[in-house]
Computed example of a mutant assay.
Amino acid sequence: MQLTRVLVSAMFAGVATGLIAALLQLIFVQPVLLHAELYESGELVHFGSAAVSANPELPGFDALRDGMSILFAALVYTGYALMLVGLMSTAEQNGHEITPRNGMFWGLSGFIVFHFAPGISLAPEVPGVASADLGLRQIWWFSTVISAGLAMWLLAFGKSSVAYGIAAVLLMAPHVIGAPMPSTFTGPVPTEIGSLFAARAFGVGMASWIILGVCAGYFWNTEGARQAAIA
């Protein structure tokens, strides 16, 4: 059954990507996050004190915290893989070839949909920063992801200028409407840490999604996945 092929391909692609993504997060993102938490807790103070070292001693490896991060990354990217491979299956049934090579573009599209498009107006945030109501932000985030997903599909498979125009409107509309913003700006974390966190979160997210696309394209075409569809 085709569903079995989707599940098998997504499971292998998601777990493989999740482990790589977790490693990238532990190396590049978590140190910045732990640094920000020192300011959130008050252990470090940015304003109104003597200059603070930009390289403080951070907490070391924590088996529970880091183990849960690895498990969570594997689960999240398996969920992403299910959506991605499901769409790949639909595209293949409509005559489009799926390969590891074009899987890179599928992955990049996923990054744009889930990270870049919403992140333009709601950037990744370090702990302790001011923010608008969580419910309103979640509504805006989901709406933006759906809008961007439809736009990317139209850009990839649309066959007319009308489809491309609709895609452009879908990409811009959430940002024209505007994301929920806090009424005041507060926060103890230096802006340098906040900008570094956002940049690394985007970078790791893009790398992980491209890896996911390549893995999804590869596992979709493995003999094991094909046999699972036949069985």
Rank of each mutant, 00 (worst) to 15 (best):
S131I: 10
V126S: 03
G187H: 10
R226M: 09
Q30R: 06
L75H: 05
V214I: 15
F12P: 00
P180K: 03
I112G: 08
A179G: 02
A225N: 06
M104Y: 05
P100A: 07
T144M: 04
V6E: 01
W106Q: 03
A163N: 14
F111D: 04
L19R: 00
G18Q: 01
Q227D: 13
L155F: 15
G187A: 11
S143K: 01
L196T: 15
S195K: 12
Q25W: 09
L7N: 04
L71M: 13
Q138N: 13
Q30W: 00
A228D: 06
V32K: 03
G86A: 03
G86E: 01
F72N: 14
T222V: 11
P182A: 08
G18S: 00
A74P: 08
G158E: 11
V129Y: 02
D66I: 11
S143W: 08
I27L: 04
A16P: 03
L155W: 15
G149Q: 06
A207S: 13
A13G: 03
F61K: 08
G158I: 09
A51Y: 13
E192C: 01
G48M: 05
T99G: 01
A198C: 04
F28T: 07
M68C: 11
P59T: 14
A179V: 02
L136G: 10
M206E: 11
A173S: 08
L212R: 00
A228P: 05
R200I: 07
G119H: 09
W209L: 12
E43S: 09
M152N: 04
L24D: 05
N94L: 09
T191Q: 13
A231R: 12
L24Q: 02
K159W: 06
G119L: 05
F12N: 04
L170Y: 10
S53F: 12
